[in-house]
């Protein structure tokens, strides 16, 4: 068990900057998700922590120990790869035992640890089989068991569920969470899937263009995004961003008006689709519905408020349809005010 310190890690590939001086603290036993779109640098950061890639500058500390210059095997970590990387020429047992064999553990220890890891991941029936005979989900379990068998101080996971189909992904997600909570391993989990990050992590670091836009608990990231990018990337459908003119400390648009921070003449009102009420008979933002999509639990309305595209999650029984015009009332305390130029949250 160990915490991790990422100290001003920078990575450039020629003229391109993949990571711009990233610093990050991960507590012992914490589950941190690195979330971001492809090309944001999250996998590069993970590979630098693993030692599979060399940083241009900066340090990586695992449990107070500077591992920046150490090869992967001396860093005391385990990793689960996106395509599992379960060795095809070894049985499941030998795959799970691989790390222990490399540590020259004795046969009794190997057997005990392999069986422990196998039972955590429910793969005992397959120990004698070769990976080719297993389904994607089972191979994923083998990859996780192989990582946990060495009782690593740190577990790194690179998009481990992205090759599974949707239903299996959901199932593995909750199971992974259970297994990792039980083992208390410090985990860094790279994903581009915000529901995965939300569901699994203690904290999420949202990355974009080689920098961390925001670090925080999933609910904070969701409710109080620090930037426009975070609000738009986390949540499906994404947060709405409505530009409003400001006069006398109040932002106003159509029949809506609310006090806002900052002193500029324009501000962005960030509001989640589910945080807008349909104000029947009262004044609000005039919303013209152009598409209505019944999604079961909600009715997703897409339309425009004064030429700005927004989405609203209405009650499924609200009976709204394309062409309707309604007044929207954003819940004041759920609004995130963002600077119209920098896209950063203001006030709060």
């Amino acid at each position: 068990m160990a915490g991790i310190t990422i100290d001003r890690i920078k990575k450039t590939f020629g003229a391109a900057t993949a990571l711009a001086e990233i610093s990050l603290e991960i507590a012992d036993g914490e589950f941190l998700a690195l979330l971001g779109p492809s090309g944001c640098g999250k996998t590069t950061l993970l590979r630098i922590i693993a030692g599979l890639e060399t940083q241009t500058s900066g340090r990586v500390l695992i449990g107070e120990r500077d591992v920046s210059a150490l090869p992967p095997k001396e860093r005391g970590l385990a990793m689960v790869f996106q395509n599992y990387a379960v060795f095809p020429h070894m049985t499941v047992y030998e795959n799970v035992a691989f790390g222990l064999r490399m540590q020259k553990a004795d046969e009794t220890t190997i057997k005990r640890e392999v069986e422990r890891a196998a039972s955590l991941l429910h793969i005992e029936p397959y120990l004698d089989r070769y990976p080719a005979k297993l389904s994607g989900g089972q191979r994923q379990r083998v990859a996780v068991a192989r990582a946990l068998a060495v009782r690593p101080a740190v577990l790194l996971m690179d998009e481990p569920l992205s090759n599974l189909d949707a239903l299996l992904r959901l199932e593995m997600r909750s199971e992974l969470k259970g297994v990792l909570q039980q083992s208390g391993t410090t985990t860094i989990y790279v994903t581009h899937d915000q529901t995965e990050a939300m569901g699994l992590a203690d904290r999420i670091a949202v990355m974009h263009g080689g920098v961390i836009e925001q670090i925080g608990a999933p609910q904070t990231i969701y409710e109080r995004p620090a930037t426009k990018f975070v609000g738009g990337f986390v949540g499906s459908p994404p947060m709405n961003f409505i530009r409003m003119p400001v006069a006398g400390g109040r932002a106003a648009l159509g029949g809506f008006s609310a006090p806002c921070p900052g002193a500029k003449s324009e501000i962005i009102c960030g509001i989640r689709p589910e945080d807008m009420r349909i104000a029947l008979g009262r004044s609000g933002l005039d919303f013209k519905v152009s598409v209505a999509e019944p999604l079961g639990s909600t009715l997703l309305l897409t339309g425009k408020v004064q030429d700005q595209l927004i989405r609203v999650a209405a009650r499924p029984d609200s009976g709204l349809k394309a062409g309707d015009i309604v007044a929207l009332e954003p819940e004041a305390q759920r609004i995130v005010w963002l600077d119209s130029e920098t896209g950063r949250a203001v006030g709060a």
Partner: peptide, 8 residues
Amino acid sequence: EAAEVFGA
């Protein structure tokens, strides 16, 4: 890479 990480 997996072999390297696991200590080979």
